[in-house]
Design a protein around this nucleic acid. Structure first.
Length: 934
RNA sequence: GCCUGGAUGGUGGAAUGGUAGACACGACAGACUUAAAAUCUGUUGGCCCGAACGGGCCGUGCGGGUUCAAGUCCCGCUCCGGGUACCA
């Protein structure tokens, strides 16, 4: 049977399509399995060979599970809101929806050619109004919810209102904004107000004030906050969209700015997001990255009262080392700390003022790498809560306003940074550890304390719980768990994103729930002259709905739509709900999630947050979206180089490039085969090379140099799947991408090996030249069952690369045995089906199989052909150790003898030892079990 | 700094503590060809003995250890990749 892959693949694909074989429906009688890929952003460049890597692996696994009898959900869609389409729109005026549509069409075409078993009837697009309607709905649910810390779950805001009406806020534990009560204080209550209100207070509030109070509790809330503002992009960015003070996309500078924004109270879920990680089958590194991002630390809140003569409340600091309290020699506040003004003495006003200005002007980037300690004394002091000593207060930018209380206690003997600060400022370093040098901080928890009052003679570990007790009984502090995770800014000043279902009346937001708010047409996609988002350009008449004084002009960030898409696949066309509960109960969690590791913090954290919220509100029945996750590695490009003699059109072959000065130039990899340059194609490539001359190697060829780099257009090393499919077929590409190496590993793309995989498929096909109804011989059966076992085991442990090797060995052995028996050929075709589905279908039929290979049960191996003998054997020693044993029936041998050479010492031990059991396969001792050993 | 993952032939990579280098690429040799391509066969970690059949020694980044047996387990390093940070 010839391997005419073009014909095979187009025919088989057409048959699958007309039979609609990939459509899946909920079937309570069959076990489900959910295999999900991280859906792509459809960029204008189309797919390169790196994109399908994860899709191929998930497709192979989905097909395997299907053959095992599972009802497999394996969908695909597009994360189709995003910046590139909008940037393109700004440049060309082309509506992003049009560009996006064209890009999706191209992606779809490329994906279909690869023969994936996606159920395209379930495709979702985040930019489709029928989809983002439900993104808006989830936002509205978050707006309409608060977090009950006692019950540890989200509840509807109406229940909070009911509680206020009954008891005011007495005894209520709810997640709310930092300093929220302070704001209310100025708003409504007297300045001596303690933070509680009664039912009577609540009931006497105006509706507007009630709204303002509730805003502080909502899970999606409006607040002024310091945001990362990127002037070049005209938008705010989340913390994880900023790298080194530059925007992740585009690399533009980012500055701090205070703006009124929609914010998600993800911090309320910090502890649950942390605990939920324990049960997940993710790699330790991804879990650890999430843990670091959430950043839980246990410690104490300690209050330092103002020294006499200074107005204001005590300064609160957060510390993880309350045991070092007696080593405090100063306090440091973030430059933005609200108490700075009160503490600043007349003489320091100017210095403080200029330091604050400098700190505000310095971008994050400038602070980076700058390890030098700077700071200014406020001139004011606070009192040590235990000793009553005066403690001077400084400001410094190594203390961050956004973490803890924005203030720290300085313990130079016990903290690296405090030590450096004390040295830079010439502050005392009270020794509080026995035997510690004053030249460095001692951060060892096992160090013994001294000069620390009641903690003398204790190690840090022992003293911390006592310190906490002491603080609490003295009423100057309490235990506190602090998280690094901040609430997530949810507004973007962009056009191409989900519009909020929100309008404003008297500057207060109102949810629009009776009609869907869709994106209105605008005449330009830029922000307006006065810095309003592009949506402010929409004329009132253009909105499908215009309510209140104005609409919300911001749109949602990219992660909104991707935080719940895996749920929509379960019920993609439901007009009445984001996903019917019966559907999500059937499909449940994603069993296997495959995607890049670059989303470890952002996407995964947000998706887990929304899933837990939807669970709290009873809309779904599970708390974690992705049970098992595999992160595929990046495929790097292999760039080719030519070597030009500078200033000439002469090019030197790789071997002789060092004979004279040469200049290395990227050359398009399509002009190079196995490192040999196609000279005519090179001359035709660019006009400037038309009359190129070449200095060749001894073989008369021009050899190019190469290097492994990220794939990029400018390096001419992008390999699209299309040309490889045209040349070798989709099955070859699928197998080759798996064969390249472990899925999770970064690896260079190198087409040199692809012919080996292609030959393997041809050899596979040739086996099916003349299938017979003959009884197979034992050797063939051994090969078959060995292959079944290896392929099955590799699939079960997601070792996609060695599957192909196992099949190659199987095919080579069967070819040598000239196997024609259908009894062997049929199951072999089924083993090939997940990896090379088109060819497998044709071979399955050639061997007399009926129906779809992809729906035929996965073969099982029979141990009788593989058994290893593990009974006891006589042992004799005559220079070598010889073992005789009876061969298993399947080997067609009566008795097998094997000899083992050993070193002197081992031989002696073997001679004298009493051997209980020897495990042997032909020619090989697997295990010798001595009597009495374990 | 911290957290992670890794280091095996010319190359990509195999190897539940049990013949290290499977499988593949590349290279070399041979067969078939007028020739090339394609295909097929053989050799291919290093060193050494042997005319040959064959045989020996050394080898998984480095140094120790556990074990009859270590690429694999333990301790201590070196180098490379990824993530992350004045987080109190």
């Amino acid at each position: 049977m010839e391997y005419d892959f073009r014909n095979i693949e187009s025919t088989v694909q057409a048959r699958w399509k007309s039979a609609d074989v990939y459509r899946v429906t909920e079937d309570p009688n069959r076990p489900k399995y959910y295999v999900l890929d991280m859906f792509p952003y459809p960029s204008g460049a189309g797919l390169h060979v790196g994109h399908p890597l994860g899709y191929i692996a998930s497709d192979i696994f989905a097909r395997y599970k299907r053959q095992q009898g599972f009802n497999v959900l394996h969908p695909m869609g597009y994360d189709s809101f995003g910046l590139p389409a909008e940037q393109y729109a700004i440049q060309t005026g082309q509506h992003p929806a049009v560009t996006t549509e064209a890009n999706i069409a191209r992606y779809r075409e490329q994906l279909e050619k690869l023969g994936f078993c996606f159920d395209w009837s379930r495709e979702v697009r985040t930019s489709d109004p029928a989809y983002y309607r439900w993104t808006q709905w989830i936002f509205a649910q978050l707006f309409d919810a608060w977090y009950d810390l006692e019950a540890d779950r989200a509840r509807p805001i109406s229940e909070l209102v009911a509680a206020f009406e009954r008891n005011g806020n007495f005894g209520l534990q709810a997640a709310c904004n930092e300093g929220w009560w302070k704001e209310l204080q100025g708003h409504f209550f007297g300045s001596d107000w303690e933070g509680d209100f009664t039912a009577t207070d609540w009931n006497s509030m105006s509706p507007a004030l009630k709204e303002d109070v509730l805003m502080g509790f909502r899970l999606a809330y409006l607040a002024d906050s310091e945001v990362n503002w990127c002037p070049a992009l005209g938008t705010v960015l989340a913390n994880d969209e900023v790298k080194d003070g530059l925007s992740e996309r585009g690399g533009h500078p980012v500055e701090r700015k205070r703006m009124r924004q929609w914010i998600m109270r993800i911090s309320a879920y910090a502890d649950r997001l942390l605990r939920g990680l324990e049960g997940l089958d993710w790699t330790d590194s991804v879990k650890e990255a999430q843990r670091n991002w959430i950043g839980r630390s246990e410690g104490a809140l300690v209050r330092f009262p103002m020294a006499e003569g200074v107005e204001g409340d005590a300064i609160e600091v957060f510390t993880t080392r309350p045991d070092t309290l007696f080593g405090v020699s100063f306090l440091v506040l973030a430059p933005e700390h609200p108490a700075v003004d009160a503490l600043t003495s007349a003489g320091q006003t100017h210095a403080i003022q200029s330091y604050r200005e400098r700190a505000a002007a310095r971008s994050e980037r400038e602070r980076q790498g700058d390890r030098e300690m700077t700071g200014v004394a406020t001139g004011g002091s606070v009192l040590h809560p235990l000793t009553g000593d005066r403690v001077p207060v400084y400001i410094a930018d190594y203390v961050l306003a956004g973490y803890g209380t924005g203030a720290i206690m300085g313990v130079p003997a016990g903290d690296e940074r405090d030590h450096r600060f004390a040295q830079a400022m010439g502050l005392p370093i009270p020794p509080i550890f026995i035997g510690a040098t004053p030249d460095a901080a001692c951060t060892d928890y096992g160090a013994v304390l001294t000069a620390s009052g009641p903690f003398d003679g204790l190690t840090a570990r022992e003293a911390i719980p006592r310190a906490l007790d002491l603080l609490e009984s003295a009423g100057v502090g309490e235990r506190r768990v602090q998280f690094r995770l901040r609430d997530a800014v949810f507004s973007r000043q962009r056009y191409w994103g989900e519009p909020f279902p929100i309008c404003y009346v008297d500057d207060r937001p109102q949810v629009i729930s009776d009609v869907q708010v869709t994106l209105p047409p605008v005449d330009a996609y830029l922000p307006t002259e006065d810095g309003e988002p592009p949506l402010a350009r929409a004329r009132a008449a253009d909105w499908n709905i215009f309510r209140g004084d104005r609409m919300e002009y911001n749109t949602m960030p990219g992660w909104a739509g991707s935080s719940w898409y895996f749920l929509r696949y379960m019920d993609p066309h439901n007009p009445d709900a984001f996903c019917d509960r019966s559907r999500s109960d059937y499909w449940g969690q994603v069993d296997l999630y495959i995607g890049g590791a670059e989303h470890t913090t952002g996407h995964l954290l947000y998706a887990r947050f929304w899933t837990q919220f939807l669970y709290d509100r009873g809309f779904i029945g599970f708390q974690e979206p992705f049970q098992r996750m595999i992160n595929q590695g990046m495929i790097l490009g292999r760039s080719s180089f030519v070597y030009r003699i500078p200033g000439t059109s002469n090019f030197v072959t790789f071997e002789r490039r060092n004979e004279q000065p040469t200049q290395q130039l990227h050359v398009d990899i399509s002009l190079v085969h196995n490192d040999i340059l196609d000279l005519d194609a090179f001359r035709a490539w660019r006009p400037e090379f038309a009359d190129a001359q070449f200095l060749l190697n001894d073989a008369g060829q021009y050899r190019c140099g190469h290097e492994v780099e990220k794939m990029s257009k400018s390096k001419f090393n992008v390999q699209t799947p299309d040309e490889l499919i045209a040349r070798y077929g989709a099955d070859t590409l699928r197998c080759y991408e798996m064969f390249l190496g472990p899925l999770t590993q970064h690896k260079p793309w190198d087409t040199q090996g692809i012919s080996g995989v292609h030959n393997f498929l041809r050899k596979f096909a040739r086996l099916y030249a003349d299938p017979q109804d003959a009884a197979p011989d034992p050797e063939a059966l051994r090969t078959l069952h060995k292959t079944i076992r290896k392929v099955t085991e590799d699939l079960d442990r997601h070792a996609f690369n060695t599957i192909i090797s196992a099949l190659m060995i199987g095919v080579n052995e069967l070819t040598d045995l000239k196997v024609q028996s259908r009894e062997i050929l049929q199951p072999m075709a089924l083993l090939l089906a997940p990896c090379a589905p088109h060819l497998a279908q044709v071979l399955w039929e050639a061997a007399g199989g009926t129906g779809w290979a992809l729906d035929t049960a996965w073969p099982e191996w029979d141990e009788q052909w593989l058994t290893q003998d593990t009974t006891e054997y006589p042992v004799s020693f005559n220079g070598k150790v010889r073992f005789k044993f009876a061969a298993p029936a399947a080997w067609n041998a009566q008795e097998v003898e094997t000899a083992v050479r050993t070193d002197e010492r081992t031989s002696q031990q073997l001679q004298g030892a009493s051997i209980q059991k020897v495990i042997v396969v032909p020619g090989r001792i697997i295990n010798i079990v001595f009597a009495g050993s374990k």
